[in-house]
């Protein structure tokens, strides 16, 4: 499975790098953005169109986002994209993990839950 991940400059990107360092068995493509609120729906769909099976958005925790609402915006947009995909009969492919560089377990949890979910949905 090809996984793309987008992390915010402040917390998400460092956390993703640390995650990949700690769990070398995971492989993913990592992109850094200034704030997770910058990632819009078309960008998410574009990434998925590029052949990635899963897009992981990693940002500051919801209640302590550096730009106050960036993570919240990203979460809402991810939900909208997932709803679009579900309407088209595709299982949800965008996941959000709100992390700090010290709290990388959340990334693993999100990845595992979504991977197991996708496996379950396959006939």
């Amino acid at each position: 499975m090809r996984i793309a991940s987008v992390g915010c400059d402040r917390q998400g990107f460092p956390a993703l790098l640390r995650f990949l360092e700690t769990f070398p068995e995971y492989r993913m493509d990592v992109t850094a953005v200034p704030c997770l609120g910058t990632v819009h729906e078309s960008m998410m769909l574009h990434i998925l169109e590029d052949g990635y099976q899963l897009l992981l958005l990693a940002g500051c925790p919801l209640d302590s986002c550096f730009n106050q609402k960036g993570s919240e915006f990203a979460f809402r947009k991810a939900q909208r994209v997932n709803a679009l995909l579900t309407e088209a009969g595709i299982p949800k492919r965008v996941a959000c993990a709100f992390v700090t560089a010290d709290k990388i377990g959340e990334i693993k949890r999100v990845l595992e839950s979504i991977v197991s979910g996708q496996k379950g949905e396959e006939p």
Partner: peptide
């Protein structure tokens, strides 16, 4: 402008 680090390997595990 967002730079991308790309891994060549594939597969989640």
């Amino acid at each position: 402008d967002f730079f991308m680090i790309t891994t060549t390997g594939s597969g989640e595990k």
